[in-house]
Amino acid sequence: MSTVPALGMPSKSFRRALADLGAGLRARELWALLAWQDIKQRYRRSSLGPLWITVGMAVTALALGVVNSALFGTSISTLLPSITTGLILWNFMNGCIVEGSQTFIDNEGMIKQLPAPVSVYALRTVWRQALYLVHNLVVYLLILVVFFGNLSHPYRLVEKAGAPLHPGLSWEVVLALPGLALLLFNGAWVVLLLGVVSTRFRDVPPVIQSFITMLFYATPIMWSMDQVRVMNQGSEDGFGSLAVQVLQLNPVYHFVEIVRAPLVGQQQSWTHWAVAGAVTVVGWALALAVLRNYRARVPYWV
Rank of each mutant, 00 (worst) to 15 (best):
152 S>M: 10
225 M>H: 01
106 D>L: 13
172 E>C: 00
223 W>M: 04
116 A>V: 15
161 A>V: 13
91 N>A: 15
137 L>R: 00
192 L>T: 12
193 L>D: 03
201 F>P: 07
116 A>H: 11
95 G>M: 04
215 L>C: 06
206 P>K: 08
220 P>S: 09
130 A>L: 09
119 S>H: 02
208 I>R: 07
173 V>H: 02
147 F>G: 02
97 I>K: 05
134 V>S: 09
138 V>A: 13
143 I>W: 06
174 V>K: 00
155 Y>D: 01
214 M>N: 13
107 N>M: 10
146 V>K: 04
205 P>S: 06
113 Q>S: 15
140 Y>R: 09
131 L>H: 06
152 S>G: 09
204 V>M: 12
142 L>D: 01
128 R>I: 01
126 V>E: 02
94 N>K: 15
184 L>M: 13
124 R>N: 07
150 N>S: 15
93 M>N: 11
215 L>R: 01
214 M>D: 12
218 A>F: 11
212 I>F: 07
132 Y>N: 14
164 P>E: 03
214 M>F: 15
106 D>N: 14
225 M>R: 01
195 G>D: 04
119 S>L: 02
214 M>S: 15
226 D>T: 10
174 V>H: 01
106 D>G: 13
201 F>H: 12
104 F>Q: 08
115 P>S: 06
185 F>K: 08
100 G>D: 01
126 V>H: 02
194 L>D: 04
215 L>S: 11
99 E>G: 12
194 L>K: 04
189 W>T: 07
195 G>H: 03
206 P>M: 07
99 E>V: 13
184 L>G: 09
94 N>H: 15
165 L>V: 14
187 G>E: 05
165 L>Y: 01
214 M>R: 11
125 T>V: 03
189 W>S: 08
91 N>L: 12
91 N>Q: 14
139 V>Y: 03
112 K>Q: 10
106 D>E: 11
152 S>P: 02
169 L>H: 00
121 Y>H: 12
139 V>S: 00
218 A>L: 14
153 H>R: 14
165 L>R: 00
101 S>Q: 05
155 Y>P: 00
132 Y>H: 15
168 G>D: 04
189 W>A: 07
91 N>H: 14
108 E>F: 08
172 E>M: 08
110 M>I: 13
216 F>W: 07
122 A>E: 01
199 T>H: 01
215 L>W: 06
228 V>W: 05
121 Y>A: 11
163 A>F: 09
211 F>T: 14
218 A>E: 01
